[in-house]
Design a protein around this nucleic acid. Structure first.
Lengths: 211, 211
DNA sequence: TAGATTGTTAATCGATTAACAATC
DNA sequence: TAGATTGTTAATCGATTAACAATC
């Protein structure tokens, strides 16, 4: 296996991708690490170092071709393939995720939502069906599921995460306010969005600012 | 001003708070940095270093009193005061935020939602009123607003963020898929939740894992 | 007191920045 | 060719870990 690239670098890649997308929209064809660094408020050195973890995408004296770099970063991030997502929990957050058309443009397709509330049975969001949690096993057996997003209460998170892994889902996008037991398992990819943690960080900075 | 504490440390504080809360629920009275490190999968050294940025909360030979440490970290994170939040955009995500009772327990109270869609006029979520965006100026003039959460499309994000700052809101919780211009302004606290970035990071790790 | 565990200094490791030779 | 800018090595900076004296 190749040397692992640090998480610090990985975290910055989507941001590069975002800025390159904006440049494309503006019709910019090429950009130097220096110009990009001014836009993004990072050092040009960091941009060059980060990119060179994956290969030499630029050209001396010219800079980087925006479209080419955009596509290459897309490949690095796995955006050149489709990922099927199921959402566990069809409450507001689950439905919000299902309504984001942005994700689909990036190759992430939400294919079904699951809930325990019988009132939601038979309903759908943007043609994405809401199924009962009891149908989960069946669904996973008959459909390709790459990612499961957990938007249900944290008390259920660990058991459902374990069940999903048993059903063959190898990546969990966790919105429950806990660290999942399953994270200890190296083979499972877990990415957590801890909204209350984010809010506390915000709060810390408010307090700091007001001093 | 005291020496700034690194963002790496700040990011870890909510996680400590979370684990201490769980310990409290379990009725654990005291814990050593070593025992906590086993639970959290970090080094005991890091825990002690992190905490000592803010003061000596422990006692040699004893460890840390869970309740005391929990309260102290709460104060550090500004959870000992109430923060009023308005949410701009009353779509699924905005309503999902309004429905999280968890935030309120942490001192973050969502007081109003704003939208441009006239169909939402007069409606409410958990008794939190949905107001029209045209009422924003008035509302901010007559109510204490500490934080504004942006859940509307990114095309509107910069202009609304600027407006909010002009109205005196000093912190923005940004869910739009852009970096805000306002972030360059040192006085404004901006915390962004970039869901698509998070998904791309997840995707990178899927690709890496499948190799 | 003896044992445990912190607070803190010192050592190590990794990430960021600077510098510049290579080269388009 | 001259100028620009990369890719990459070296230097710096900061964060993490280890070690241990202080002390409960």
């Amino acid at each position: 296996m190749e040397k692992d690239i640090s998480q610090a670098v990985i975290r910055r890649m989507p941001r590069y991708y975002r800025y390159l997308g904006e440049l494309l929209d503006e019709g910019v064809e090429r950009i130097s690490s220096n110009d990009l660094s001014n836009r993004m408020k990072v050092t040009a050195s960091q941009i060059r170092q980060d990119l060179n973890n994956f290969g030499g995408f630029g050209q001396q004296g010219y800079g980087y071709n925006v479209q080419y770099l955009y596509d290459e970063i897309g490949k690095i991030l796995g955006l050149d393939r489709q990922h099927n997502i199921i959402v566990i929990g069809a409450g507001n957050l689950g439905q919000a995720l299902a309504n984001y058309t942005k994700f689909e443009k990036l190759g992430f397709k939400i294919v079904a939502l699951f809930d325990v509330n019988p009132e939601l049975k038979g309903k759908s969001v943007r043609d994405i069906p809401i199924l009962m949690l009891s149908e989960l096993d069946d669904y996973c057996a008959n459909n390709q599921v790459d990612i499961a997003a957990l938007t249900m209460p944290k008390s259920k998170a660990d058991s459902i995460a374990q069940k999903l892994v048993d059903l063959g889902v190898m990546a969990i996008w966790n919105f429950a306010h806990v660290d999942l037991d399953i994270e200890k398992n190296e083979d499972v990819v877990v990415e957590s969005v801890h909204l209350s943690d984010s809010l506390m960080q915000l709060s810390y900075n408010i307090v700091k600012n007001s001093k």
